[in-house]
Simulated scan of single mutants.
Amino acid sequence: MRQIILDTETTGLRVEDGNRILEIAAVEMVSRKLSPPERHFHRHINPERDSEPGALNVHGLTTEFLADKPKFAAIVDDFLRFIEGAELIIHNAPFDIGYLNMELAKLGRGKMSDYVSGVIDTLRDAKEMFPGKRNSLDALCDRFEVDRSARTLHGALIDCELLAEVYLSMTRGQDSLLIDSTAATDSHDLAGLAAAASAARDRRGALKRVAASEAELAEHAAYLDALDKAVKGQCLWRSLDTEAATA
Rank of each mutant, 00 (worst) to 15 (best):
M1T: 15
R2C: 10
I5T: 09
I5G: 03
T8F: 01
G12Y: 00
R14C: 03
V15A: 06
G18K: 00
N19K: 02
A25F: 01
V27E: 05
V27C: 02
K33N: 13
K33H: 11
S35R: 14
P37T: 12
P37L: 04
H40M: 13
H40P: 05
F41Q: 13
F41P: 04
R43F: 06
I45N: 10
N46E: 13
P47I: 03
P47T: 07
E48N: 10
R49S: 09
D50I: 06
E52F: 12
N57I: 00
T62S: 09
T62K: 00
K69R: 14
P70C: 04
K71R: 15
F72S: 12
F72T: 11
A73Y: 03
V76K: 12
V76Y: 05
D77E: 15
D78R: 10
L80A: 08
L80D: 07
L80H: 10
F82D: 06
G85C: 12
E87R: 12
L88E: 13
L88S: 04
L88H: 13
H91K: 09
N92E: 01
N92G: 10
P94E: 14
P94V: 10
D96G: 12
G98R: 14
G98M: 12
Y99N: 01
N101M: 08
N101G: 07
E103D: 02
A105V: 06
M112H: 10
D114M: 02
D114S: 08
G118M: 03
G118R: 03
T122Q: 10
L123F: 07
K127N: 04
M129T: 11
P131M: 11
P131W: 06
G132F: 07
K133E: 15
N135H: 03
S136L: 05
L137Y: 01
R143W: 01
F144P: 11
D147H: 07
S149D: 13
A150M: 05
L153K: 08
H154W: 02
A156G: 09
I158T: 15
C160F: 08
C160T: 11
L163R: 06
L168W: 04
S169V: 03
S169I: 02
S169W: 03
M170H: 11
M170Y: 11
T171S: 13
R172S: 12
G173R: 01
G173N: 06
S176G: 03
L177P: 01
L178T: 06
I179C: 02
D180K: 00
D180N: 12
S181W: 02
T182F: 01
S187I: 12
H188L: 14
L190W: 10
A191P: 05
A194F: 06
S198C: 03
S198Q: 07
G205D: 11
L207T: 10
L207V: 05
L207Q: 14
R209E: 15
R209L: 15
A211H: 04
A211W: 02
A212Y: 05
S213H: 04
S213D: 12
E216L: 14
L217W: 08
A218D: 15
Y223N: 13
D225E: 15
A226Q: 14
L227V: 10
D228F: 00
G233S: 08
L236M: 00
L236E: 06
R238D: 06
L240M: 08
D241Y: 00
T242C: 00
T242N: 03
T242R: 07
E243R: 09
A244C: 04
T246Y: 00
T246E: 13
